[in-house]
């Protein structure tokens, strides 16, 4: 093999190999077609979900939740990280919050969340915020702490207010940390939403992608189940490689400040 093949192409080759192994196993292996459907069956299940628009509206529903949750959590953690930067008392308070809540998986809080917030969209929203805010805050705080003292002095020198220094210097300077936080936050929120939907079911309208998969499971529609998983993988790749990757390329990678 001449090493002309690019890494991304190699990824596709491996995906192709895995699919081929899958198909061979499904066709000729000693497996139950109920639990191990062939690719053609999965593909047609996926196609059907796409043309009936089910899966699209359900993805849309889940993504809408995640985006609003992500945005709210980012704003909240920015506020908390900012006050922590200017007050040592708040700094130790937010440290305590992070060390208490960061290790707690959102899904473990479900019983409590059901009791306090019910099972509606409010509950899912709380779970997303919980999933995102602590890793985000942790990253932003270390990002803010890593901002060189000189940067702050330059801000003061030009008589910028606290807010001005925050927005013009601290936030862009700690963007690599912020992006790392968003990456973790996104992954956590995405998982939390799927898990929560699988527990709660539809939380309005047609429900999200987790509910879609749950329904496929309870009706034993294994090809549909796989279709849902493929969509989840696809969205993961799309968001992480394309959206976040693009942002990184046009910011921290270009500036040479990526961690």
């Amino acid at each position: 093999m001449k090493s002309k093949i690019k890494k991304e192409h190699l990824k596709f080759i491996w995906i192709f190999v895995l699919l081929a192994v899958w198909e061979l196993t499904a066709r000729f292996g000693p497996v139950n077609p109920i639990s191990f459907p062939s690719l053609a069956v999965i593909a047609s299940a996926l196609w059907e979900s796409v043309i009936t628009g089910d899966i699209i509206s359900q993805i849309w529903f889940s993504m809408g939740f995640i985006l609003t949750g992500l945005l709210t959590a980012i704003i909240l953690s920015l506020v908390l990280a900012s006050i922590s930067t200017f007050s040592e008392l708040m700094d130790s308070f937010t440290d305590t919050l992070v060390s208490v809540f960061h290790p707690l998986p959102g899904i473990a809080m479900l019983p409590l969340i059901i009791l306090w917030f019910g099972t509606g969209s409010k509950a899912i929203f709380i779970i997303i915020i919980h999933s995102v805010i602590w890793p985000m805050l942790l990253n932003l705080k270390s990002g803010f702490k890593s901002v060189p003292e000189i940067y702050r002095k330059i801000g003061q020198n030009y008589e910028h207010s606290m807010a001005g220094i925050l927005f013009k210097i601290f936030i862009p300077a700690s963007l690599p940390f912020g992006l790392a936080g968003i990456k973790i936050g996104w992954a956590r929120a995405w998982r939390a939403v799927i898990s929560a939907e699988m527990v709660f079911g539809a939380t309005g309208g047609k429900g999200g992608i987790g509910w879609y998969i749950f329904n496929k499971r309870v009706f034993m529609d294994t090809p549909g189940l796989f279709a849902g998983l493929i969509v989840i993988i696809g969205i993961g790749i799309l968001v992480e490689d394309l959206v976040i990757g693009k942002i990184e390329n046009s910011t921290v990678k270009k500036w040479g400040t990526s961690q």
Partner: peptide, 23 residues
């Protein structure tokens, strides 16, 4: 009413109903 369903085990369902939220 399929879009109004919430999947809860019997005891969780009882709690949710008694809690008086949207269930």
């Amino acid at each position: 009413l399929d879009n109004n369903l919430v999947t809860l085990s019997h005891p969780d369902g009882l709690n949710a109903l008694m809690a008086g939220n949207e269930v």
